[in-house]
Each structure stands twice: as structure tokens, then as C-alpha cells.
Design a binder for these strands. Structure first.
Lengths: 236, 236
DNA sequence: GCTGACAACTTATCAGTGTTCACTCATCGT
DNA sequence: ACGATGAGTGAACACTGATAAGTTGTCAGC
């Protein structure tokens, strides 16, 4: 091959992917190798939303959308796990920001906690697939430690612990549990709600009546927040 | 491969799996085809525990362990999803049983709820990978509806809703939320705790310090149960 | 303008995956 | 003894993530 192909830039290099994918992307200039990196992350984010599942997004599909060959991706990311982690991590800095913002509002500690809970749930439901990738169990364990060192999720968790500690000092929150343990409990409740709601959404999109008799999302969210609110106060 | 190896029939009746796997399983008698089905499910359960992750267990590995060729599995299960679902579903009937048992003990509704919560968490942590497979988001949505109709998880959820309704009638539980919504909230809290603890365990097994400053599992479990206990009572 | 070095890729390929089709073989009722 | 049938096998397909080696465009220095 490459036999008689005159390097006619103007039109011989038409769509490498006729159907849907992008045509061949022009090569980056010498210092601008990192631009491809950003385009890859963008494509991953799009495909993740479209397919809804990390495993349904192949490296090849990403490469095709960007208009590049699959190995080019490995010039910027060590493997698929790191690629997806980086993609979702970027989005999660926004969540961390929103949580810190909610934690810094005026009002009682309980009110601030509720704001944080709402912000968390809203954001996680908004970016469902990304959220699931970042929280996806053991797979996160494969990421190199220095990447996780400044994980936005951990920063956000620290804010939660601090807020709860503040509430304990202010006498708004029960004192029979460690602030960190209470923070994990709160996180677990909110996280669990998000996971269940995302599961349900996925099931509905598959037109399969998996969870038949559940209340609507809003009622679930309100119930979880009410549970947390009363739960952190204690004094049954 | 493609090394043009002569198919040496002369001693071809050697063990197909020399290293670790089982050797070739003797063929079942004519009416006993279902015995293979049970052996497959057993092998899947074992491999799931060993590998810790559904995606790390291949059909070929299952077949090798059973001592059978990969296509034989498709005589008993439609695809990989159904195979794993059936495997985990079997284990989950035990959970459902334990929950119903806990719901039927003597004591106040709150005490019974706590027993149920403990039984749920214990069981989920005991069979971590199975639990995750069954709860694994959108993938469950691909299972045929009639399978899910008598999902043990749904039966268990109904028990939870009933118990909470009972508590509302007895005046032990807050009345400002729907019993089903409250049940989802309780479920979410416990489910979230399990997921976080399983994530942490997986991270530790990978010798990667993912979640550095978290309290130990016991404290987390107690905090979540306390949160739920106070949370369902309400009256902050 | 030329040239060599190097960044930015591509082509070809590997090993492994879920899954299917066509086929064999042992067992059973007759 | 024999044909039907249940219980499986072998080879192959269309994918996947990943790698090694080659190519090509671009830039600095002469």
C-alpha cells in the first residue's frame, strides 16, 4: 500500500472513517503535542456519556473520534485505566469546588451539610458515568499512588470531616462517634443514594423494569437528606 | 501461534490443561446435563472470589477450571452476564433469608432494623464480589426481565418497606416521609457503606494507599447504623 | 536551502476476550 | 444393531487492550 498515493493534502486524505468518526486529524506542531492529550480527554468524556459505561468505550473508538490511530493514545496515557481516571478526575475538581463552596456558606452546620449533600448528589447524577468510574471499587486501586495523592475526592472528604468536627464543637452534632466515622457514614448514605439512582436510571434506559416499586428520585433524595440530617444530630 | 503445528493425533488424549486447571471432565450421562451447570456455577463463584472482579474472570478460565471447552458454557447460559447473574443470585437467596430472619426476631422495630442492617452488611462484606456483581449498575439492566422478577434483592427490599411501615404505625419511626422513600434511604446508607468498605478493601489488597485517613471498618459500620437509627426516628 | 535530530505519529502485530457454527461422539430407546 | 439425540469439541470471527518498529512532518543550526 501507500503505492501510488500522491500526498495530495487537499482532498485525497478524505474521511478515513466515512461513517461517523472524525477524519484524520492534522498532525500537531512540534511543541504542541499536549493538544492531542486534551482532545483525547474530551473525546473520552463524550463517549462516556454516550455509552454510559467505561467498558463500552474502547480505546479504538476514542482514537477514531479524535481522528488518530489507537497507539497515539498511549503516547499520553499509560493505559486505559489512567486515561479514564484522568478524564473523570478533571471533572471532579469541579465537584470538589462546589462542595467547598457549599461548606463555606453562611448558616448552621446542619444547613451547610445539607447544602453539601445536595451539591454532591446533583453533581454525581449530572455526571453519572464519570462518577461511577472514579468510585469504581478496586479498579481505582490500580492507579499510581501519586495521582491519588491530590485526589479531589479526598480533598472534599477532608472538608466534610472538618464541617462535622465544627458541628460537634458547636453542639449541633452528636458526640458519641468519631468525626471521621460520622463523615464516612454521611458519605456512605449520599454515595449509596447516588449509586441506587444511577442504577435505576441505567435500568430504565435499557427499557427493563428492574426496580419496579421505587419512589421517584426526588423523594429518595429528600428522604436520604432527612435521614442524614436527623442521623448526625443523634439523640434518638 | 498459527505456527502450523501438526495436529498430532497420536497422543492427543493428554490432559488439555496440563498446568493448573482441571483435566478433561468426563462427559455426563444422557439425562445429567444439568450437573455441568452446577459445576460451572461453582467454578464461577470460586474464580470470582479469587480474582475479585467479574471482568477478571474469563469464560475460558471458567471452562478450564471445570475441565470443559468454552462453548459448553453456552449450552447452559445465554451469555456471560446471565452466567454471573445466576451465580450471584444463588448466593443472594441466602442474604434474603437472613434478612427475613432478622426482620422476624422479637424486639422493637428499631432493634429489628438494626439486626437487618448488621445482617446485610455482614453478608455483603462476606461475599464482596458477588454483591458487587449483583448491584453493578446498568449491567443488571441487561438481564432478562423474568429473571429479575423474583430477584431476592427485591424480596428483601419489600421486607424492609414492611418493617418500616410497621414502625410508622407503632409510632417508632418518623411520619414525614413515605415508607418506601425511607426504605430506599436506609438501603442507600447501608449499600453505600458496603461499597465504600469494599472499595477500601480492594485498594488495600492492591497495596496502594488509596484512602489514607479513614476510620476502621468497625467504626464505619457502627457510625452508619447509628446514623440510620437516629435518622429513621427523625425529630431532630 | 540543506540536513540531521527529534517529536509526533502510523502500520502491523500480539495475545486475549465473548460468542457462534459446524461437527463429533457417546449413550439410549427400540 | 442402529439410528436419534443429548452432550459436548474445534476452529473461527469480530472484537479488545497493548507494544515494537517504522515513518513522516517540523524545526534548529549551518
Amino acid at each position: 500500500m501507500t503505492s501510488a498515493t500522491v500526498p495530495d493534502r487537499s482532498e485525497s486524505r478524505r474521511s478515513t472513517a466515512p461513517g461517523s468518526g472524525a477524519s484524520r486529524r492534522p498532525r500537531a506542531r512540534k511543541g504542541e503535542g499536549n493538544r492531542l492529550r486534551e482532545e483525547i480527554l474530551q473525546a473520552v468524556a463524550e463517549l462516556l456519556v454516550e455509552k454510559g459505561n467505561k467498558d463500552a468505550v474502547s480505546i479504538r473508538a476514542v482514537a477514531k473520534r479524535v481522528g488518530v490511530s489507537p497507539p497515539a493514545i498511549y503516547l499520553h496515557f499509560a493505559d486505559k485505566d489512567e486515561l479514564f481516571y484522568q478524564c473523570c478526575r478533571g471533572g471532579f475538581q469541579e465537584l470538589s469546588r462546589r462542595l467547598e463552596e457549599a461548606a463555606a456558606t453562611a448558616g448552621t452546620v446542619l444547613e451547610r451539610l445539607e447544602q453539601m449533600g445536595r451539591a454532591y448528589i446533583d453533581y454525581a447524577l449530572e455526571r453519572g458515568p464519570q462518577y461511577q468510574v472514579l468510585m469504581a471499587g478496586g479498579e481505582t486501586g490500580e492507579i499510581s499512588p501519586e495521582l491519588l495523592e491530590d485526589d479531589p475526592g479526598l480533598r472534599a472528604f477532608a472538608v466534610l470531616v472538618d464541617t462535622i468536627g465544627e458541628g460537634i464543637e458547636a453542639g449541633e452534632i452528636r458526640t458519641d462517634h468519631d468525626p471521621a466515622a460520622l463523615a464516612v457514614a454521611v458519605w456512605a448514605a449520599v454515595h449509596g443514594a447516588v449509586m441506587l439512582l444511577l442504577s435505576r436510571r441505567a435500568a430504565e434506559e435499557a427499557t427493563s423494569p428492574v426496580m419496579p416499586d421505587l419512589p421517584p428520585s426526588d423523594a429518595t433524595v429528600e428522604a436520604v437528606l432527612a435521614l442524614v440530617r436527623s442521623g448526625v444530630v443523634g439523640g434518638s
